[in-house]
Computed example of a mutant assay.
Amino acid sequence: MNIICPLAVPKGRRLCCEVCEAPAERVCTACTVTYYCGVVHQRADWDSIHEKICQLLIPLRTTMPFYNSEEERQHGLQQLRQRQKHLIEFCYTVAQKYLFEGKHEAAVPAALHSLRFRMNLHGLSSVELVPAYLLLAEASLGLGQTVQAEEYLSQAQWTVLKSTECSYAIQSLLHRNLGLLHIAKENYEEARYHLANDIYFASCAFGTEDIRTSGGYFHLANIFYGLKKLDVADTLYTKVSEIWSKYLNNRYQVLSEARIQQIDLLGKRFETDTGLDEAQEAEAIQILTSVWNIRESTSDTAPQKTIFVLNTLVMLYYLMMNSSKAQEYAERAFGLAKEHHLSVHEQSTIQELLSLISAEETHPVT
């Protein structure tokens, strides 16, 4: 972490803390353009996001250089906007990843950065601000700050209502977060209403079988599971598992074909990956691990469903190039299949996955 030092504020100029907007007393000595009310908030910001973007902030927060022509000035402005767009998405993804990992406090500074960059680029009333408001609302819920979460969600709702061009994707996110709010308040009827809308808008934007729609099914399943409506919950958990399994297996098939071509053309192995950003990978881990934990409690009566989720986790970690985790889940699946005397075909499918992982460890990607 960079050293912070007392700030000499020019007379008549008010500088604000990056985290809480209180009067600043400290400055980051590495970038000299980021200010804090004290050590606690500087450390929180550093651990969350500032370490990753410290130097990237300098050109955004310093005076633009003098340009010799209007063409050069426009080019400079365009580069500035591109930097802002990059930081908006980067901070958003980092905050999302923290939320899926349950690190709600760490998500706040990153989400605040995304919000401020959006305000600078799009203005104070743009619908582009809504995703950042929703991140902050979700982080607040995770921290038990329901009133604060409601304030962020009210701001998001008001912005959407004023907008004439709000995408289905943003409306989906808004309803998902409203659903999570009502779950926290134990108002399950209202929560179901909003999550049903989340699924509808996500389906309009991406399709009913898309991984970006699966989150709505998952949260809705959790409500029914908590209400002991296990048949409905089971159907929804199955749908979530199938969506992720289909995506990951399709991804594997595409990469396998590309790998063969790459070996033929270049004589080297093709690097596998999930096709997801870090936040989406964290979401996949959170959702599939949660479903697996629930399936484990019923594995005596429905072992195939537990094994199906385990195999999906195997494929996820395999594509993430985490062989140890992939092998761990594959061995669990194989053990469960043998314990319940499942068919030879089902056991051989799991053995194929284990062989795949072993081959990867023997011949690592270069």
Rank of each mutant, 00 (worst) to 15 (best):
L180W: 00
Q261S: 11
S214W: 09
E257R: 14
H194A: 04
S256W: 07
A184C: 10
E278R: 02
R212L: 11
L255K: 09
F270Y: 02
I211N: 09
F270E: 04
G179Q: 04
I223A: 02
T272E: 02
Y252M: 09
N249Q: 14
C204W: 00
Q262T: 07
H175P: 01
R259A: 12
S241K: 07
Q286S: 09
L265H: 02
R212P: 01
E189R: 02
A282M: 11
Y188T: 05
E283W: 08
K229E: 13
G216A: 12
R259H: 08
S245Y: 10
E190Y: 00
L195G: 07
E271G: 04
K246I: 11
A258G: 08
N250Q: 08
E242D: 05
T238M: 10
E242P: 06
I223V: 10
G179M: 02
K246M: 06
G215V: 13
L174Y: 08
T235Q: 10
L173K: 11
R269Y: 03
E209D: 13
F206A: 07
W292K: 11
Y252C: 03
T298H: 08
I211C: 14
N293H: 10
T235M: 08
L220P: 01
I199A: 05
D300I: 15
D300G: 06
K239S: 11
Q261C: 01
